[in-house]
Design a protein around this nucleic acid. Structure first.
Lengths: 341, 341
DNA sequence: GTGAAAGCGCTAACAA
DNA sequence: TTGTTAGCGCTTTCAC
């Protein structure tokens, strides 16, 4: 069943059928009705590929994330999918499994090349390669938006968290509460996030005149296991830290587990600051009374979708690129002990 | 940059370029090399839509799940995606949010109509409608596979869990341990699963001569919250049950939480049997010592992918359909108290 | 308002 | 082995 068959059955030309399908104006009401009726009767579905090929538009947005299981990405992609759908675009979710080779190959995939736009929250590929990868999209003037990945000025649109500022807030809170021996546990996904959190930690420690014990800076994965293991190592040191900054939700959960297993009490025997990445983390940490740095997951998702939709609508060549930065909020709860009293 | 340009640059016909792209035999090595070189130099990407249209093959499988956040589906789609990819097929993940209207509309979506095959783990649409929905796929002879959804004989391929048998095992274990007052908490997704679990529970209770207290049969969502709320209701009854069967992972987690909050100890003051749907549930419940019914997530995923790949390969008209049933294993741990001693 | 017809880029007979 | 060419089903000028 093709557009031709419908045209024949409705006694009109294929052009008219196409106009009806695409809700074009300048079709008389009776013909429109007639065509619609035939389409209905024949249960006709236009061929998507033919339409994409002829029109050059797919109404498809590819969203690339490191993994779809982490609450941050779950929430993010959920919001984006819903909003893009409301705007008339389908979403194709792709995950890279934190593999930069996979990330690079994705950008050459059929779906990316047919997509009308890309939103990427991955950060495993170096800038040079990345620019090469997005060139074909640029040529077609398709919007590309990068999240949580910093790009040198005016190279592509991006949205980032102020992770440096976030870490600074955490360190300062601990400092104000009299902590001197501050540890951090961090993972290793991507380039920007780790770099910034690390930088935020180190610079603010230095600014406040606090000593950085390199043994206190623990690197692992962004997993509960890392949280458990590294916290245990910290607790078993001769001179353990009085506070730990756990740099994502999972590490923080692991840290809590390890601290409790050690017979210590969070916010009393040892202080802990975590990161709440999504609403579900927020619920958990709020229940547990953990002071956290809060990421702007939903806001980012909204911004990303709206921005994409807007760019798609205007369909202009883009002369310059913008970087938007979201503040990382500090949410004080009860996991930081006051050491000054 | 089209196949024509490549052909011109390499001094061959478009047909030859197409043959090289598609790894066709009967292309001399030197020409193949020449074409490959030009493709490389020009950074040429074949147009996917044009290829799909001309060949009638998309090498795309659509996988439909109720939601992508539950561990069962996360693991399932992860395995399927990987295996299909190894077989040369891309996966498009679609979620219905447990909405049967959404499920129905998905089957009319562009991606389903272009896909070479469908794997659906949703169960919200009635059989009649479902059959109507898959008719276009049937006409194109594209394989369709349904998981965890029972279809009347010889209507479509499906893979199901023996949920009736699973529940029977749970009830019998409790019976052997002297339990008489047995409760169950169940959710409401889809048609098959709830029906079967319910049936397994009721028939085995009757077969064993145990009384079914309708107040003990609690229905809610498949969520932690339901687990908490319904367990609390059970515990607060005048004559509370001595054992609870929590019909999925989340409900079980909620049940544990409620029981502990009530100051009771699982496996001592009250018995509990849960369901482990995925490897991550297995880890959790094993750590907590919860006796569970184990679903065959990974096996199903492997079977589904391999079956799909196989059907795609043979590309024959399918005369009959098969139903495969996976045993639901009972994994005894320490959450069932022996009431006979 | 409506129709005719020229592509969109690729594949797959068929020819050579 | 390689090239020619007729579609695949739809959109979109352009003409009427």
């Amino acid at each position: 069943m093709t557009i031709k068959d419908i045209a024949k059955k409705a006694n009109v030309s294929v052009a008219t059928v196409s106009r009806v399908i695409n809700n074009y104006k300048w079709v008389s009401d009776d013909i429109r009705a007639r065509v619609r009726k035939v389409i209905e009767e024949e249960n006709y579905q236009p061929n998507y590929n033919a339409s994409v090929m002829a029109s050059g538009k797919s109404r498809l947005i590819v969203v690339v994330v490191p993994d779809i299981t982490s609450p941050f990405f779950t929430q993010f992609t959920g919001v984006v999918t819903k909003r893009l759908k409301a705007g008339g675009y389908a979403t194709m979710l792709c995950q890279t499994d934190n593999d930069s080779a996979e990330e690079a190959s994705l950008f050459g995939s059929p779906f990316v090349s047919m997509a009308d736009g890309i939103i990427s929250v991955t950060d495993g590929v170096e800038n040079d390669l990345l620019l090469k990868m997005i060139r074909p999209l640029r040529e077609k003037n398709n919007p590309v938006l990068f999240l949580d990945r910093y790009l040198p000025a005016n190279i592509a649109d991006c949205v980032i968290h102020d992770n440096i500022g976030g870490m600074r807030k955490a360190v300062e809170l601990l400092y104000k509460n009299g902590h001197q021996r501050i540890a951090m546990i961090i993972g290793q996904r991507g380039l920007t996030v780790v770099h910034d959190k690390m930088k935020g930690f180190r610079t603010s420690m230095i600014d406040l005149g606090l000593p950085i014990d390199e043994d206190y800076v623990r690197e692992g994965d962004w997993t509960i296991e890392t949280g458990v293991t590294e916290t245990e190592k910290l607790l078993c040191m001769n001179n353990p830290p009085t506070a730990i900054i756990a740099c994502n939700n999972f590490i923080c959960e692991g840290a809590i587990e390890a601290i409790e297993k050690h017979g210590l009490k969070v916010g009393k025997d040892i202080s802990l600051i975590g990161v709440e990445e999504s609403d579900s983390d927020a619920r958990l940490f709020s229940k547990l009374g953990i002071t956290t740095l809060k990421l702007a997951c939903a806001q980012m998702a909204n911004y990303a979708s709206d921005y994409m939709l807007e760019r798609l609508k205007q369909n202009e060549k883009q002369g310059f690129y913008t970087t938007v930065e979201y503040v990382v909020e500090l949410r004080e709860r009860n996991s930081v002990a006051n050491m000054t009293i």
